[in-house]
Lab assay of single mutants.
Amino acid sequence: MFKRLMMVALLVIAPLSAATAADQTNPYKLMDEAAQKTFDRLKNEQPQIRANPDYLRTIVDQELLPYVQVKYAGALVLGQYYKSATPAQREAYFAAFREYLKQAYGQALAMYHGQTYQIAPEQPLGDKTIVPIRVTIIDPNGRPPVRLDFQWRKNSQTGNWQAYDMIAEGVSMITTKQNEWGTLLRTKGIDGLTAQLKSISQQKITLEEKK
């Protein structure tokens, strides 16, 4: 169930391209415009997507990853294993993690069937560096609404905000991946996880038929 919630949630996290980005210092504006741009692209490019579902990787690479804190999220997933990894191991892992996100997020976007969304009203940021933004996803086919909290983090150097995690039903996506990959990290280390991520990233994206 959580895996499905995570995939549905990713439908609204794909941010804007650099040329049309919203105010990078306001995570609420980023979330709002990102959702609108993403849904528009999914709707307008269905012919290309249906002809070649792996085209979704391109959308992810162009529109999402430049505005997601990939390395920060990847380091959180590694936890204690990050500090013990060599620079070469980290570089290989982050490259594999990025390719994994292209496949995983692309597969999530393949679930698009006309969903709509509501974003919580903007709250004062103050001096906060981590801000959760509640998004409610509404399914046109009558499924119950899904309420999610996207975690946005302020870059201490640039002042810009980027998304790095999502919490559904009190469970963090980062925590879920830590639990899912924990045994592999304990037995085969970061190299074993890197190899698995490379394998997963090679899987073809498949479209979910409308139910």
Results as ranks from 00 to 15, higher is better:
Met1Asp: 08
Phe2Ile: 00
Lys3Gln: 09
Arg4Phe: 00
Leu5Arg: 05
Leu5Asp: 14
Leu5Thr: 08
Met6Trp: 10
Met7Pro: 09
Met7Lys: 01
Val8Cys: 00
Val8Ala: 01
Leu11Pro: 05
Ile13Thr: 08
Leu16Met: 03
Ala18Thr: 11
Ala18Cys: 01
Ala19Met: 07
Ala22Asn: 13
Ala22Met: 14
Asp23Trp: 03
Gln24His: 04
Asn26His: 05
Pro27Asn: 10
Ala34Tyr: 05
Ala34Val: 10
Ala35Lys: 15
Ala35Ile: 05
Gln36Tyr: 00
Gln36Met: 08
Gln36Cys: 00
Lys37Tyr: 09
Lys37Ser: 05
Phe39Val: 04
Phe39Arg: 04
Asp40Tyr: 15
Asp40Met: 15
Asp40Ile: 10
Arg41Gln: 06
Asn44Glu: 01
Gln46Leu: 04
Pro47Ser: 04
Gln48Tyr: 15
Ile49Tyr: 13
Ile49Arg: 08
Arg50Lys: 07
Arg50Val: 11
Arg50Thr: 02
Arg50Pro: 04
Ala51Gln: 00
Asn52Asp: 04
Pro53Ile: 02
Leu56Asp: 15
Leu56Tyr: 01
Thr58Gln: 14
Thr58Tyr: 10
Ile59His: 14
Val60Trp: 05
Val60Asp: 14
Val60Phe: 09
Asp61Lys: 00
Glu63Tyr: 13
Glu63Trp: 13
Leu65Cys: 12
Pro66Val: 14
Pro66Arg: 02
Val68Glu: 10
Lys71His: 12
Tyr72Ile: 01
Tyr72Asn: 01
Ala73Glu: 12
Gly74Ala: 08
Val77Met: 00
Val77Tyr: 07
Gly79Met: 14
Gln80Tyr: 10
Lys83Arg: 02
Ser84Thr: 04
Ala85Thr: 00
Thr86Asp: 09
Pro87His: 04
Pro87Arg: 12
Ala88Phe: 12
Ala88Trp: 12
Ala88Arg: 01
Gln89Arg: 13
Gln89Pro: 10
Glu91Ala: 02
Glu91Leu: 01
Tyr93Lys: 15
Tyr93Asn: 02
Phe97Met: 13
Glu99Met: 01
Glu99Tyr: 00
Leu101Arg: 14
Lys102Gly: 06
Gln103Met: 05
Gln103His: 01
Ala104Thr: 15
Tyr105Asn: 01
Tyr105Phe: 06
Gln107Cys: 06
Gln107Trp: 11
Ala108His: 09
Leu109Cys: 06
Ala110Leu: 04
Met111Val: 12
Tyr112Thr: 05
His113Thr: 09
His113Arg: 13
His113Met: 10
Gly114Ala: 12
Gln115Lys: 09
Thr116Gln: 06
Thr116Leu: 13
Tyr117Lys: 14
Tyr117Thr: 13
Gln118Phe: 08
Ile119Pro: 06
Ile119Gln: 15
Ile119Lys: 04
Ile119Thr: 10
Glu122Leu: 02
Glu122His: 14
Lys128Phe: 06
Thr129Arg: 06
Thr129Val: 12
Val131Cys: 01
Pro132Gly: 11
Ile133Arg: 10
Val135Phe: 04
Thr136Trp: 07
Ile137Asp: 00
Ile138Leu: 13
Asp139Glu: 09
Asp139Arg: 10
Asp139Leu: 06
Pro140Lys: 14
Arg143His: 04
Pro144Tyr: 12
Pro145Asp: 03
Pro145Arg: 10
Leu148Trp: 13
Phe150Ala: 15
Asn155Ser: 07
Ser156Arg: 08
Ser156His: 11
Asn160Glu: 09
Asn160Trp: 03
Trp161Glu: 07
Gln162Pro: 13
Ala163Gly: 09
Ala163Pro: 12
Ala163Trp: 02
Tyr164Ser: 08
Asp165Glu: 02
Met166Lys: 10
Ile167Gly: 07
Ile167Gln: 00
Ile167Glu: 03
Glu169Thr: 05
Val171Asn: 10
Val171Gln: 09
Met173Arg: 09
Ile174Gln: 06
Ile174Ala: 13
Thr176Trp: 07
Lys177Tyr: 12
Lys177His: 11
Glu180Trp: 15
Glu180Ser: 10
Glu180Arg: 14
Trp181Met: 02
Gly182Lys: 14
Thr183Lys: 12
Leu185Asp: 14
Arg186Ile: 00
Arg186Ser: 10
Thr187Leu: 08
Lys188Met: 02
Gly189Thr: 10
Ile190Asn: 13
Leu193Arg: 10
Gln196His: 11
Leu197Ser: 03
Lys198Arg: 08
Ser199Trp: 13
Ser199Leu: 10
Ile200Gly: 11
Ile200Met: 02
Ser201His: 09
Ser201Ile: 11
Gln203Tyr: 11
Lys204Thr: 11
Lys204Phe: 15
Leu207Gln: 13
Leu207Val: 13
Glu208Asn: 03
Glu208Ser: 12
Lys210Trp: 13
